[in-house]
Structure formats: C-alpha cells, structure tokens
Amino acid sequence: MIERTPVLDFITHALLIGSLVALLIPFWIIFVAASHDFHTVNQVPMPLMPGSHFLENMATAWERGNFGRVMLNSIVVAGGVTIGKIVIAALSAFSIVYFRYKLRMVMFWLIFITLMLPLEVRIVPTYAVAADALRPFKAIFELFGISVGLPEWNLLNSYSGLILPLIATATGTFLYRQFFLTVPDELTEAAKMDGSGPVRFFLEVLMPLSKTNMAALATIMFVWSWNQYLWPLLVVTDQQNFATATMQLQKIVPGPVFGEPPIWNVAMAANLIVLTPPVLVTIFLQRWFVRGLISTEK
C-alpha cells in the first residue's frame, strides 16, 4: 500500500519501537545483573549499565549448575521430543487424510480430544504408566482373569521417560492435516501413475513439500519442550545424571531461605545460559522457514 500518512506512520513506528523496548528490557536487566559482582548487584537501585564480571559469573554459573551435563540432557530431550512430535504428527495426519478405513473418523476425534488433555491434566496416570510401563497391559489381563508374569519396566530416570510422554501432539497433527489437504489431488495421482507407493509418496513428495511446516512446528515444539519443568521434576530423581536445564535453574535461583543472600548475578548468568539454545533455534529455523515461505511454489 502506498500512502502518505506521516502522523499515522509516526504513531505506528512509535508503537513498534515502544513494544520492542518493552520486550528487550528484561533481557537487558538479566544481562546487566549477570555482569556485576555480588555486592553491586544487590545495591538498591541496581545499576543499569553492565559491569565487568560477566565472564567470571558465567563460568561460576556453568560450574555450579553442572551445565555441561545438564544442557546436553536438555538438548537430547528437547530434540527428541521435537523429532518425535513431527514424525507422529506427519504420520497420523497422513493416515487421516490419505487413507479410507473404518475407524478413520474415530481416530481423528480421539486425536482431537487429546487437545483438551495436556500433560498437566493427565499427570498422575501418566506418571503411573511411566513408573510401570506395562501396567496398562497388566490391568487388561487382570480384567480378563489371565495371569501373565510381565516384567517390571519403568521409565523413571531415563531419556525415554523424559521424551515419550511429551510426544503425543494434536496440534501438530492438525497443522499437518491442514497442509495435506492443500496438496492437490492431481499430485497424488501423478505420483500413483509414476508408480509411487504410499511410503515413497510420503517420504519423497509430501515431506519435502512440508519443509516450511516442519520448521514452524519444530520451532514451536523445541521451545515448548525445552521449557518443560513439571514433568522432568517428577520423572527424574537421579538429578546428577538426568536433570534438565530448567530444573537446574531452579536450584541456582535463590530460594526463599531466610538469612541467605540472593546470589542474583550468578542466577542471571545461568538464566542466560539456559535461554540461549531456544533463542538460537528460533532465530535459525525462523530464517529458514521465512525463506521457504518466500520461495513457495504456486
């Protein structure tokens, strides 16, 4: 739109810049706090210009939080959840859109219903299953009076326990379903005429076409699973080996213990460490999917 409305332009720009500043101020404060020594950071008011202890604080935080190990855990978990979610979402949407079978609509609605059941709502049964993965089967067997000696198998203190319960995703399935519905039928038919079976069509036509979708989903899901707090806290007792970054943060942020001075500078440095990967993923994937959007084929 080409219009000359200087007043309106000024107002929109002021609004944009204002929101940007409002958005960045917390980050600035974190950064400033992470760059002062213990005494300066506890002054009232806190200084608004960065100090000279940044690297020192970062090193302390890294060491105290055992971040070498913990960050790796978080990356494995968030990466695993993201990949798992994308795979599950793409496959389930593929099944719902491209195949005609009896319980198709039932399946669709079952997935739909899980939208209303986030982890927090079903956390007790989910934990029960994580503590004894074969328990549902045992319950079924008991119902029919069959006694089968199933082995104990728990997911506590393991990557699978951290990842698997978070993977189910109705949102992703819907996103993919929406995308698959926009793929023209003729393309599917052309692939059929070329001799392609469903698996090949899925892998070689649908997946490459859904790259931008995947990037969007990956961004959202990575950030979401990185920020998971409640579930890791429940399922991990072996904090030495399986703690995630968000869990670790809680130990560094000063707790409500009287008489203990809050070590804000180190806590803020730890904060910076923890928020780096999701920010990087967002920046990287966002650029990628914007590029994808620009060059989308007609």
Binding site: E186, L187, A190, A191, K192, M193, V205, P208, E297, K298
Partner: peptide, 19 residues
C-alpha cells in the same frame, strides 16, 4: 494398480512435483 497398467497420464493442471 495404476502403475501395473502401463499407462501414462498428462493432467490438466500438469501436476508437476513443485520441489
């Protein structure tokens, strides 16, 4: 199946693989 029939088809909207 279509692939077993030995036919090739040209579609109205061409249906080329965009990627």
């Amino acid at each position: 199946e279509p692939r077993e029939r030995g036919c090739a088809m040209v579609f109205q909207n061409y249906a080329l693989y965009p990627h």
